[in-house]
Nucleic acid binder design. Structure first.
Lengths: 396, 396
DNA sequence: CAACTTTCTCCACACTCAGGACAAAGGTGC
DNA sequence: GCACCTTTGTCCTGAGTGTGGAGAAAGTTG
């Protein structure tokens, strides 16, 4: 099929496209209720959108007591590709224009293998999704990488855990390969966007989204928009010091949050507890290579293992301590916790909450929900689709 | 004289007013270079502003090689009142429409005496400024208070150091008394606004402004706008924990930043050092009541007193530790340090810088200036004038 | 004093947008 | 089945917004 070529010509059209994206099919009359435009002006803009092919008239809706309305919806053939590159795996999904995930693939891969190898894998996954009939092509793609990004150019800058990616023109390269517009962002920001679009953070203007995976990062949303900072490294909380003269961190400092608690740190601590005989539950879960993951710790905790519970509680205290500071500083309306450790669930949440509610001032915490993300692995890819759709659904 | 009654009728007019405020008198042609409007449209809007009396034509400028231009400037009689209520003193200033401080008064006063007594003092100071001929009346007033504010209503909420102010309708009361529009904000936010308008933070979009006075707070500017948080308590960093099981704080917790370093904590430590004989330099500066202030510590340090230097260095390390975390999180383009302790100067700055550059990642600190505010006590009142002028110079 | 610049005004024309009249297409009650 | 209502959508007029060009006014420069 012919891919999306047109862009909205003005802010009205952009507004209408986003309403249709976020609210599904709608009649002209219903759209009119939401946009503060006269019916006549609205009709003109809808007609123009129909001409561009971005939206289509799609049959008649049931009567609401009068003449039946024509359903207007985004072109059903539009497809976005959402890519979420983590430290240890890749998620790729296809969505329709309403950002509903139509198909989703996950593949383990070490990001340190470098952009070329990773790109090959991403393209193979995209091809597989296309071959399965979910898309004939992509109208746009969003991609998240686990490190800071110079956002306007779509280029990673000085990413600590993926040094081979420094300066690699992710946006341009992927755009070339896919033949469609591409936007690049930090994976944590995309998780925040995903939870904002379809998850727990709907209708919250200012919130924090703490992603605890291999590392730790924090998405910052101000007034509904992702805040990226001066050099694109905002939210990089993994190297905040939580213990003077604490553990050595890969960054060269001591006592960084990430060194004391993160997916990687938790796994190391669990493996240590297993090997030194402090936890038979964990020892029983060691794999052939003597490795454990956050999932194993969650399982051991669920089985009542006190050492596993201690590790989770201890970790929650560490993150909670940092989050408490951020809550005092940022005064968010919501804190979302997600990433690979979501499986640790309420044990983790409980100790985070304890720290925050104890350390921050009542005015900041009084009405502050601290919750787990509800989208899991879909958050990142949904956020990626949202990123490119926000870009395409804005005036050219 | 007749006070300002009109407000800009549209965004163009608001834009023009702000250009005239920030850039001084300008010709129509110069304004046209800055606003992306045709000369004809611009002439129409300027004419309308002239009709309202908000701006006046003020003689001819020198020729730039052709016909001489008419100077357009903000009405010279416009006067704003800027009020900055600190924990221990009140600053009041009159500015013209360009926010230049025409007169400035300071009066020591304990904010805990409550809103009624403080208001009386503020009104007396305003009357004194008026009596001196600097203003015949005020077209608007901005006021800062040392605590969180519900911004839209202009009402302090749960302010820890001034409990008597909780819920007091500052905006409404002052507006009644002065007979002009009033906006209320946190004193720290106003300092940030002041430094942004006329100080070190000009042309910086995202920055932090740490004010260390009796307490400690942090103004947050995102994209040129003050960020206030969900309940107006954003930037309240005084109660971030810097030492587990540290000193008891007035808030009920232990180890708060404010308990370890702030104007009040520094004074206490200095008095202690003086009384226990660790520092003759400080002891010599004790006043009749056995009290010291940040100024005394600065003087002792300048005289080479090692104990005073230690206190400053120690305090700088504490704040630096917190700022390092905030820099990682927020990735600002600038950090400004101001407030009563500015007198500690480069001794303080040095230890703050050391902490931040050591603890934060290079990407966030690479090009990050950490500087002292340059406006001193004028920052707050300038910010207050800026606050109300931003309000009045926006479409009604 | 002619030629050029800069500043400002005036005017014709295109575009945007609101609101009312009206047509189309349904439901409801008798 | 029919009159009357509601809802949806279209068309038209008129007010306002904004552009760009012509040209006048007021300088400078050689």
């Amino acid at each position: 099929m012919r891919r999306m070529t047109a862009r909205p010509a003005n802010t009205h059209q952009a507004r209408l496209l986003r309403l249709l994206r976020d609210g599904g099919p709608n009649s002209r009359a219903q759209l009119g209720d939401q946009v503060d435009l006269s019916r006549s002006k609205l009709a003109v803009e809808v007609d123009r959108l129909l001409e561009t092919g971005l939206v289509v008239a799609d049959g008649l809706a049931a009567s609401r007591g009068g003449r039946r309305s024509h359903n207007i919806r985004l072109a059903p053939g539009l497809r976005f590709l959402g890519v979420d590159i983590g430290a240890t795996s890749i998620d790729v999904a296809v969505t329709n224009a309403e950002l509903e995930v139509l198909g989703h693939l996950n593949h383990p891969m070490d990001v340190r293998e470098g952009p070329v190898a990773v790109f090959e894998q991403v393209l193979a996954m995209a091809a597989k999704l296309r071959a399965s009939g979910l898309a004939e092509g992509f109208d746009g793609a969003g991609i998240g990488v686990p490190g800071p990004v110079r956002f306007p150019e779509g280029v990673p800058v000085a990413p600590p855990i993926m040094p081979g990616w420094d300066g690699f023109p992710v946006r341009e390269a992927l755009s070339q390969e896919l033949g469609c517009p591409v936007m690049v962002d930090n994976d944590v920001n995309l998780m925040a966007l995903g939870e904002q679009h379809a998850g727990v953070a709907r209708s919250v203007g200012d919130f924090l989204c703490v992603k605890i995976g291999t590392g730790i990062g924090c998405g910052i949303v101000v007034g509904g928009e992702v805040y990226r900072g001066t050099t694109g490294s905002a939210g990089d909380i993994g190297h905040i010091q939580v213990e003077p003269d604490g553990r050595a961190c890969a960054c060269g400092n001591r006592g960084c949050l990430e060194a004391h608690f993160s997916g990687a740190a938790l796994a190391r601590d669990a493996e240590d507890a297993a090997r030194t005989g402090r936890s038979p539950e964990l020892a029983a879960r060691l794999d052939g290579a003597g490795k454990l993951s956050a999932v194993d710790v969650a399982a051991a905790a669920a089985a009542g293992d006190p050492t596993a519970l201690d590790l989770i509680r201890e970790g929650g205290n560490r993150v909670g301590q940092v989050i408490a500071g951020l809550v005092s500083f940022f005064n968010p309306g919501l804190v979302v916790i997600g990433g690979g450790v979501t499986g640790l669930g309420h044990n983790l949440l409980a100790s985070v909450r304890t720290q925050v509610y104890r350390q921050s001032l009542p005015l900041a915490t009084g009405n502050l929900p601290i919750v787990l993300g509800e989208l899991g692995p879909v958050a990142g890819v949904t956020g990626a689709a949202r990123l490119i759709s926000d870009h395409l659904f804005s005036p050219a």
